[in-house]
């Protein structure tokens, strides 16, 4: 193993999360054996896929020391925009491209406002979250879209192409969304841990002042991560739209918390510099296990929220305790 890049992989946090997943899994299985069934596990991974895709994009934003609160709204807006123009008669392929482009453009706008105007990204994307949600409501008239039953209904050929993106089942009954997630995770892992781009993102987030002194391309890289983050949110929205066959303007609004939670539980710090793709994926998995398991053992939707919120705080609290010792030793 390469010693310069090693610490990205040999991470006590990830081992801890994996053991937590195993322990929780055992408890749930003891309560209800169907938790451990292949069918349930595949379903669980599928259901976390859109959250996972968004979390991958957000990981890059967070490691460079920025935030993006608008991704939930982008998810909903991209799907809604695609659906709306498709139903209006645009062919599905350009409609999909327009939806993805919308996500990229909103991400670019976030970057422009925070880099060129100098507004902190928290505020830019907080505003953008609401602006984009408003756009979704506006173009949809606050109504959901189901292309199959629209008036006139979507072209069946186009519909099957569209549904194939998110609904297909592959060999061993594996949902295609699982493959999307695994593929994206591999791409992002290479991007963050094996390219100059990722190496420098970590440097920039670790110390923006030093990054500027070393003349790393800080502004350009921030544009890339925000734009990419917007694109990933749009892709996630599109795939869920495809899987469900329908979308509504407020979809995605409830995703913001789990996406952030996945990245944070995965070991990223909001101040930047520290995040790993494996951590993010495992963090998303932990949240999915909790979500799914709590449903299966019948805790109820309301109590479930309490558990998931609490688990997020607990994971970070645990990290504080372990990293406090290290940072004390590290002061020179």
């Amino acid at each position: 193993m390469n010693s310069v890049l090693r610490n990205a992989v040999r991470n006590p946090r990830i081992l801890g999360l994996l053991s937590a997943i195993v322990v929780i899994g055992v408890i749930f299985s003891a309560n209800n054996p169907s938790f451990i069934s292949t069918r349930n596990i595949l379903g669980m991974v599928r259901s976390m896929s859109s959250m996972g895709l968004m979390a991958l994009g957000l990981t890059l934003v967070i490691i460079v020391g920025e935030l993006d609160l608008s991704i939930g709204s982008i998810y909903g807006f991209a799907a809604m925009l695609t659906g709306t123009i498709w139903v209006d008669g645009v062919h599905i392929v350009p409609a999909l491209l327009v939806g993805i482009a919308a996500g990229l453009v909103i991400g670019f706008l976030n970057a422009a406002l925070s880099n060129w105007v100098g507004i902190p990204s928290f505020i830019v994307t907080l505003g953008m979250m609401t602006v984009v949600y408003g756009l979704s409501l506006l173009i949809s008239g606050a109504e959901g879209i189901n292309p199959k039953y629209a008036d006139p209904p979507a072209d069946p050929g186009q519909l099957s192409v569209f549904r194939a993106l998110g609904e297909t089942r592959l060999g061993w009954n594996i949902p295609i969304q699982v493959i999307w997630l695994i593929g994206a995770a591999i791409v992002f892992w290479v991007l963050l841990h094996r390219t100059l781009f990722g190496f420098r993102l970590a440097a920039m987030g670790s110390n923006p002042v030093a990054a500027r002194a070393a003349r790393l391309p800080v502004t350009r890289y921030k544009f890339i991560v925000f734009t990419l983050g917007g694109g990933m949110a749009a892709l996630a929205g599109m795939l869920d739209f495809s899987f469900l066959g329908a979308t509504d303007p407020s979809s995605g609004q409830s995703l913001l918390f789990p996406v952030f939670a996945a990245v944070i539980v995965g070991g990223a710090t909001l101040t930047g510099g520290k995040a790993t793709i494996v951590g993010t994926v495992v963090g998303a998995l932990l949240l999915a296990v909790l979500n799914n398991g709590l449903s299966i053992i019948g805790v109820g939707a309301f109590a479930k929220e309490i558990f998931i919120g609490g688990a997020t705080i607990a994971a970070v609290a645990l990290d504080r305790f372990t990293s406090l010792k290290r940072s004390k030793a590290g002061q020179a």
Partner: peptide, 21 residues
């Protein structure tokens, strides 16, 4: 810069720091 808080990347290892630029 004079201040190592402005010249080094705190989350990096020794090896990464040597190569950061």
């Amino acid at each position: 810069p004079a201040d190592r808080g402005e010249s080094l990347f705190s989350d990096f290892s020794v090896g990464q720091s040597l190569l950061a630029r």
